[in-house]
Structures are given as structure tokens and as C-alpha cells.
């Protein structure tokens, strides 16, 4: 029978030709009845996992960019102890670093929705009613807080000699900041930032708790739909591992490029 569909319980829809049929049937049988992991079921839904990965990357990357841009002025204000800004910024970073991201996200998503004022405000319809926006706002503020603190550390640790040299050249404070202090601080903050990026990716599983279909969300959907224990989680894990692998590779490349001057010098033996 050409194009007959396999009536194998879960997958009513697979259409195969005659020659493919026996092999596919064989694989489905192994997968469903003998293998500890139903790999054919995962293969059937792998496209959903790719869409999930897109959402995970989208929210993670946008919030990293937004949070990163916010962090630069905040870190400068902290590093230079700006009288009216230092304390409030410290409070902000303390709050976001001192509480779990899950709780922060719940507060924004479920918490704010309790108030009629919020639900009737102009912010509700396009922004706060959408889980995507709620996540993006919380994640951005969260990563901004972490980035502010280690960027501040990097700025404060700028070598005195670099600053003296800049002053000796007659640079104004602004120019010195733009040309010397910030680029140097960015480079030295790079290793810490790669951790922040990977933590952000891991933290993005919070998306699945506010109904979004990120990688873990799809994994939980698969588990829920077919009452499975492992398949969804293991596939999600592999996706996260692959993403982290790529991210850490990219950072290692950047580090070897931007931090070349900080590597211990090879001494020439006499």
C-alpha cells in the first residue's frame, strides 16, 4: 500500500512509501516498546523544540542587550560614587541580585495582574498582559543588576598607569572614559560576562512557568501530552547543552582576541 499511514497509537499521521515502511515500522516498534527513551516520538516533535530554542534565544539575547546597555551608565554612576545615584542603584542591584528570578517573574506576571489599576492602565494591553513582555522586563532588569556590579568592579580596577597616561595626554574626563576606561573595563569584564550570559540562558527556563513555550516549555508539553517522565527533559537538556557549547566557544574566541595583552608573556630563554 503506497502512502498508507501507520496506525501506531500515538502517530496516526506518518505517511510512508512501501520500501520505507518496514524500516520505519521497525524503528517505531523499538522506540515505543523496547527503548528506554521513545526517540521516534522526540524525532516527530523536534521542530517544536527548534521553535522553543528560538524563543529561548530571542528572550535571552534581547534582555542581555537591554540589560547590558542599562548597566553601563549605572556602573559608571556607582564607580564614581555619584551622590544622588549611588544609593538608589545599590538598592536596585541588591534587590535583583538578592531575590530569585522566578519570584521576580511571578511578581510581575501574576502579582501585577491582581490589581485593577494595572489591568485598566494603558500598560496592560500591549505589555503587562503578555507573558513575553513580563519575562523580557524582568530578565532585563535582572541581568542589568548583575552586569552593573561586575562592570563597576572592572571600572574601579582600571590600572592607575592607564589613567595617568590618559591625563598626561590631556584627555578630558569624558574622552578618557570613552577611549581608555570603558574599553579596558569591558575587556577585563569579558570572562565574568560569559558566565552571566550562560546563567541567563539557564535562568530562561523560568519562561516555561509563565506559559511560554521555550525549550523547557516544549519538553514539558511533550511529557504532559504523552505522560512521559524523561523524553521532554532529556531533549531539552541536549538543546541547552548545545547552546551553551556554542556560547562558550564564541566567548573563548573573543577572549583570545580582546584579552591577548593580558596573557602571560612567553619568556625567551637565553
Amino acid at each position: 500500500m503506497d502512502g498508507a499511514s501507520l496506525q501506531r497509537g500515538r502517530r496516526p499521521g506518518i505517511t510512508v512509501t512501501n520500501t520505507e515502511r518496514t524500516l520505519l515500522e521497525y524503528l517505531v516498534d523499538i522506540s515505543e516498546n523496547h527503548s528506554p527513551l521513545d526517540f521516534m516520538l522526540i524525532a516527530d516533535h523536534i521542530d517544536k523544540f527548534f521553535y522553543g530554542a528560538l524563543l529561548t534565544l530571542e528572550v535571552t539575547l534581547i534582555s542581555l542587550v537591554v540589560g547590558g546597555l542599562m548597566a553601563i551608565p549605572l556602573a559608571l554612576a556607582r564607580a564614581y560614587r555619584q551622590p544622588w545615584l549611588n544609593r538608589p542603584i545599590w538598592c536596585f542591584t541588591y534587590f535583583f541580585r538578592g531575590t530569585p528570578l522566578l519570584v521576580q517573574t511571578y511578581l510581575v506576571y501574576y502579582g501585577l495582574a491582581q490589581f485593577d489599576v494595572v489591568r485598566e492602565s494603558f500598560l496592560w494591553d500591549p505589555v503587562l498582559s503578555s507573558p513575553w513582555w513580563c519575562a523580557l522586563i524582568t530578565f532585563s532588569l535582572n541581568t542589568a543588576a548583575y552586569t552593573t556590579e561586575f562592570l563597576r568592579g572592572a571600572i574601579e580596577n582600571t590600572a592607575k598607569g592607564e589613567i595617568e597616561a590618559a591625563k598626561a595626554c590631556g584627555m578630558s574626563t569624558l574622552r578618557m572614559m570613552r577611549r581608555i576606561i570603558l574599553p579596558s573595563a569591558f575587556r577585563r569584564a569579558l570572562p565574568a560576562y560569559s558566565n552571566e550570559v550562560i546563567f541567563m540562558l539557564h535562568s530562561s527556563v523560568v519562561l516555561s512557568t509563565i506559559t511560554l513555550q521555550d525549550i523547557l516549555g516544549v519538553g514539558r508539553w511533550l511529557n504532559g501530552r504523552y505522560y512521559l517522565a524523561y523524553e521532554g527533559f532529556i531533549t531539552a537538556m541536549l538543546f541547552y547543552m548545545a547552546l551553551v557549547f556554542v556560547i562558550s566557544r564564541v566567548f573563548r574566541l573573543w577572549e583570545s582576541h580582546w584579552l591577548k595583552h593580558l596573557r602571560p608573556r612567553e619568556t625567551v630563554e637565553a
Binding site: A113, Q114, W124, T209, T211, Q213, G224
Partner: peptide, 18 residues
């Protein structure tokens, strides 16, 4: 189709207008 961990959360979001 929007999926929730508990039925209570479903009602919460229905009431909130999501």
C-alpha cells in the same frame, strides 16, 4: 493553546483577562 502547571493558575489568568 496556553498550558499551565495548575488549574488555579488557569483561572487566575482567565480572571486577569489573559
Amino acid at each position: 493553546i496556553v498550558l499551565y502547571a495548575t488549574q488555579e493558575e488557569v483561572f487566575q489568568d482567565l480572571a486577569a483577562g489573559r
